[in-house]
Amino acid sequence: MAAKHTPGERIAELCKTYGVSRETLSERSGISTELIRRIEEEGHIPDLAPLLKISRALGVRLGTLLDDHEELGPVITRAGKAGEAARFITGVPEAAKDDSHKGLIFKALAADKNSRHMEPFIVDIEPDAEQAKSTHEGEEFIYILSGNLALEYGSENSVLHEGDSVYYDSIVPHRVISADGKPVRIVAVIYTPV
C-alpha cells in the first residue's frame, strides 16, 4: 500500500484495505464518527490521543499514520531538520497551515524508523494553544528545552521549567500548555505498547 500524505488519507486507506467502516472504527477506538469524518474528509488534525486510539483500533502503530516511508537502520535527524521529517499542527487542516498559525506544532524526530514503539517529537507550544485533556494507553516522557510548561495531570497541576522533565502514564487525563503566555519548546517521547 502506498503511503499517503495526511493522517486522514492514511486512515481512510487503511479502513478501505481492511474493510472497516467508519462506524466500526468509531466503536473500536471510542472516537466519534464525526471526528473520524473530519480527520478523513477535512484534514482535521486532532491532538495525538485520538490518533493513537485510531491507530490501535486499526492494529497499526501511530507512525503508520504519520510516516511517508520507513528505514530499517538508525534514523538520524540533524539539528534544525526535525521539521523536514514530519510536521503537523493540531486542529488545523493541511491546506490551512501557514507560518502564522498558532497551536501545538509536532516535529517528528524518527518519522522514517521502521517498527518503532516510541514516537519522539520536538513540540512547539504557542501561547494561545488550546487542547482538551487527553487519555490514551502508553507512557510519555517530556523534557523542557525552553519556556515554562504547565502540566495538568489528573487533578494535579505542575509548572516545569527549562531543563525539567516528567515521565507519566498516559492513561491518566493530561494536557500541556504554556504556563505564562509565552512559547514553550519540549522534547516529547510517546511510548505505546505493542
Rank of each mutant, 00 (worst) to 15 (best):
T64E: 14
D67S: 15
D68S: 13
D68Q: 14
H69S: 13
E71G: 00
E71F: 04
L72I: 13
P74L: 10
P74D: 13
P74G: 12
I76M: 13
R78S: 10
R78L: 10
A82R: 03
G83Y: 06
A85T: 11
A85G: 11
I89P: 02
I89V: 15
I89W: 04
T90A: 11
T90H: 04
G91M: 01
V92P: 01
P93F: 05
E94R: 14
A95H: 13
A95E: 15
A96Q: 15
K97E: 10
K97I: 15
D98Y: 08
D99N: 07
D99L: 14
D99F: 09
S100V: 02
K102Y: 04
G103T: 05
L104S: 13
I105H: 11
I105R: 10
F106H: 14
F106L: 10
F106C: 08
A108K: 06
L109W: 09
A111Y: 02
A111T: 15
K113C: 06
N114R: 14
R116M: 09
R116V: 03
P120N: 11
P120I: 07
P120Q: 10
F121R: 04
I122V: 15
I122D: 10
V123Q: 02
V123M: 07
D124E: 15
I125D: 07
D128H: 02
A129F: 06
K133N: 03
S134N: 00
E137M: 11
E137A: 14
E137N: 13
G138E: 12
E140T: 06
I142E: 03
I142H: 05
Y143D: 02
I144T: 12
S146P: 00
S146I: 00
G147D: 06
N148I: 01
E152L: 09
G154E: 07
S158V: 03
L160V: 03
L160G: 06
L160H: 05
H161A: 11
E162V: 01
G163N: 08
G163R: 08
G163M: 07
S165W: 07
Y167L: 05
Y168I: 06
Y168S: 01
D169Y: 04
S170I: 00
V172F: 04
P173A: 09
H174S: 12
H174M: 12
H174I: 04
V176T: 15
I177M: 09
I177T: 15
S178D: 08
S178W: 03
D180P: 01
V184Y: 01
V184E: 02
R185M: 06
R185H: 03
R185K: 15
I186F: 01
I186S: 02
V187K: 02
V187S: 00
A188D: 12
A188R: 12
A188Y: 05
A188E: 14
V189E: 03
I190N: 04
Y191V: 00
Y191H: 13
T192H: 08
T192R: 05
P193E: 08
